[in-house]
Design a protein around this nucleic acid. Structure first.
Length: 358
DNA sequence: TAAGGGGAATAGTACATCCT
DNA sequence: AGGATGTACTATTCCCCTTA
């Protein structure tokens, strides 16, 4: 079953078909949705030949005399970055978006509704706003036994570090496990496990004697952004601090201390966004110096967030900002109008090129 | 709210196998 | 032979969930 998918993915970087687990999951959710709400929502066999954009599935919902189409996006977790992601891709397709997940909590349900993002989940929560159909249900409790959780064994904190390294350097996947471990900043024993899981998910193809290849890297990156925000980034937070208005213009930050992420990096890259909040990725031993040099005050709700950088120190690194992948991921999580617009620009100008067919 | 029990993740290392 | 490589294994850490 995987062979065919892998071959197709191999031939076309930008497409990603549902893997068997996602397919099964989607059918389960649709079944319960139809039962709960008395609609007929089903998967439409997509004409892949003419859709160049990545999409998980096209769904068709029938009522008495009408038919609606949705572009479905399946996500195993739902956080602010998912909302950012949905907003980024809001106008990619002619049909309305529909987020499909295992469980969407009441807070996220409200946020999704406020942003006009349709969703359904396995617990029976839903928001569908396609006049004359209107559904909004939240508060149903999470069901434990769902299968989606097993979809992401590669996306553990160290797995996320490794995937970042793989995305930044596509050649790395074909190097020795020791080199991958060193470049990613993770343990040797972890590398094999992550690769195995990436193979299962269809992101790595083993071509035997011809080595390994990273595939569907655009989809992998999209997934990485969300899991990074959920599982790795919170662990990296060293503290939040307060600075004066426009502090970042005068901020003293040496390249060997750390780099700008988030809005400031986005501004330096595009000139589009006037930063209001700052994210800085620092080498954690340098935190004290940075705080002292810039007279930062530690506060709970400061506008400066300082994170520990998780990639090994690169001697050639002399830029003042982090990799566009990280900047984009930071912006997605902020997800207001300004940052999403900027995220789009950065995606088009600085990221899309990594995923073009070669 | 604090403590602590238990399980998952992972760093680090030892070892078997492969390659030159 | 001897270094390089992937895998098996273990000790430790971390985090979540229960319990008082």
């Amino acid at each position: 079953m995987f062979i065919k998918n892998e071959l197709v993915n191999f031939l076309n970087e930008t497409r990603m078909y549902l893997n068997p687990m996602e397919n099964k999951f989607l059918r389960l959710v649709l079944e319960s949705f139809n039962k709960n709400f008395g609609f007929q929502m089903e998967i439409e066999e997509c004409q892949h030949d003419n859709c160049d954009l990545r999409i998980d599935a096209v769904l068709k919902m029938k009522t008495q005399n009408m038919e609606f189409k949705f572009s479905a996006e399946i996500k195993s977790i739902v956080n602010l970055s998912v909302i950012g992601f949905m907003l980024h891709h809001k106008n990619d397709f002619s049909c309305a978006q529909l987020l499909v997940s295992n469980y969407i909590n009441p807070i996220m349900a409200e946020k999704l509704k406020n942003n006009g993002i349709n969703f359904i989940d396995a617990a029976g929560n839903a928001y569908i706003n396609t006049p004359p159909v209107f559904i909004f249900v939240k508060g149903n409790k999470e069901k434990k036994e769902q299968a989606v959780s097993s979809m992401g064994k590669a996306f553990t904190p160290s797995g996320i570090k490794m995937i970042y390294a793989l995305l930044c350097n596509k050649m790395l996947i074909d190097k020795s496990y020791r080199e991958i471990a060193k470049t990613s900043g993770i343990a040797l024993g972890t590398v094999g496990r992550v690769i195995e899981n990436l193979k299962k998910l269809g992101f790595v193809i083993d071509m035997g004697s011809r080595g390994k290849k990273l595939t569907s890297s655009k989809a992998l990156f999209d997934r990485w952004c969300i899991d990074y925000a959920e599982k790795l980034k919170p662990k990296l937070l060293l503290g939040t601090f307060e600075g004066p208005d426009d502090f970042w213009k005068e901020f003293h930050l040496e390249p060997d201390q750390g780099q700008w992420g988030g809005e400031v990096a986005a501004f330096k890259l595009t000139n589009y966004l006037k930063p209001e909040n700052a994210i800085i990725y620092v080498i954690d031993e340098k935190l004290r110096d940075i705080v002292l040099q810039n007279r930062l005050k530690r506060t709970k709700k400061g506008n400066i967030e300082i994170f520990k950088n998780f990639w090994p120190i690169d001697a050639k690194q002399d830029k003042s900002i982090v990799h566009p992948f990280l900047i984009y991921a930071d912006l997605l999580e902020i997800n207001n109008q300004r940052t999403i617009e900027t995220a789009k620009v950065i995606y088009d100008q600085n990221i899309a090129g990594y995923f073009r067919k070669s």
